[in-house]
Write a protein that binds this DNA or RNA. Sequence first.
RNA 1: GGUCCCAUCGUCUAUCGGUUAGGACACAUGGUUUUCAUCCAUGAAAGAGGGGUUCGAUUCCCCUUGGGACCGCCA
Length: 463
Amino acid sequence: MSFICRFAPSPTGPLHIGGVRTALFNWLLAKKNKGKYYLRIEDTDKVRSKEEFKKQIISSLAWLGIKHDGEEYIQSKNIEKHVAIAEELLKKGFAYKCYCSEEEINQQKEKCKKQGIPYVYNRKWRDAEDLKVPNDVQPVIRFKSKISGNTVIKDLVQGDRNISNSTIEDFVILRKDKSPTYQLSATVDDHEMKISHIIRGDDHMINSFKQKQIYEAMKWEVPEFAHIPLIHSENGKKLSKRDNASTLEDYIKIGIMPDALRNYLLRLGWSYKDKEIFSKQESIDLFNLEGVGKSPSKLDMSRIYSINETYIKTIDENELFKYLKEYALNYQKPFDQSKEMTILKSLGFLKNKAKTLHDIWKNSQYIIRNKIDIGSEEKKLINQLSTKIIGDFISQYEKLDKPSRENLELIIKSLINNYKTNFKNVGQPLRIGLIGSKFGPGIYDIILSLNKDEVIKRLKDLL
RNA sequence: GGUCCCAUCGUCUAUCGGUUAGGACACAUGGUUUUCAUCCAUGAAAGAGGGGUUCGAUUCCCCUUGGGACCGCCA
């Protein structure tokens, strides 16, 4: 059996985290089964579709490492075909022209609202040979949904889903301006692209019942369906654009790495035994639809941070630096070239205190900045004793040929002895002088990561 | 409101009739450590409720409760 999957976003906004997961699952299933994964841009909403969103979606997916096969498919380029199918359905008696004006429909909706009953189109023009066709109304074409019987979808995630056909209204497939609607376009394109598995959010369940009827009317082979549960925000509702971490960009901005997000999204609603960390290859090998749960899952930021932290600590440092550089370039300031080597060499300890690229970037600021700003809290900690200690430290440090952890340790120990004090009273003033904060990397790491002149200069500034 | 669906620690989940209900994140405590962290150890934490079926139910069925999705000439 061949696996041809697709992800079909509409370019009406930035890519949503739920959409990212849908794309991921489609891609994973296609790759696992050596099939194809296509990207289709559903831009038939002429008003809301924007070129910039299309570009953003494509680049977001590229950032995550989800590459589609072939060129991206632009739905609007196939409109003529969609219209032709609408005409064909009309000719074959599976669709009909509806001359209800928008006012008429709105009136009906109002009426239903008043009576407190749900609105369903009344199928007025379904079998209307004797109705007089108004000449001031452009008709829409509606699909003639089945009135009796049931439709069953053998959903690969949800199991058998059964719905009474009477609950499906005669949906519009061609608007009054002769443009196709989603139900039609998506179905025609899925058929033309020979999509074998449609994996999409659970919010499309009803659409699948509608679209299945179109497949059957056209005598097309019906694809397999899998409706994956939606991702809910931390307060349990469907994720909306208002949630502050809902677009991919939101995560990139705070310094989440692509593999970490991929891993998080994979494990959200899917599991494989007790395994938590999956390399890209492992996720392809191990992914399956059977492991996808049926209930929606809530987004958990602390989990995202935690997985990101794991990746920061385990990936190759050159690769990590690549991500860090990109992050700095896009969301902070590009690194000064002369500082790059120092940062790369210091990554070993900078990354130990970081959950995000932003944290690493923050930790590396003392290397980047030439002038150290000392916080007001920290200034209070610099007293007579500490300036004396720093002074002593400088004179001993200056004499060192080549500073090393060992000889630095000797100096610090002698200072502790001479001043009959503890490490804290020696280390803290030094840290404040060198990085401006009492929090930060280990003092030896700091000193060794900076030039000897720079260390002396910074410490003298403190005196 | 109508239709459909879901239900194990706070969160993501394991269990596919017999388990001291397991793991991970978060949380708490202790230890290591030169600060903050890391790291290590330990702990607290769950089968929504009620009926069945069964020798035995978290697991199968029904009801209740709670939660969700859909209900556009948007996609």
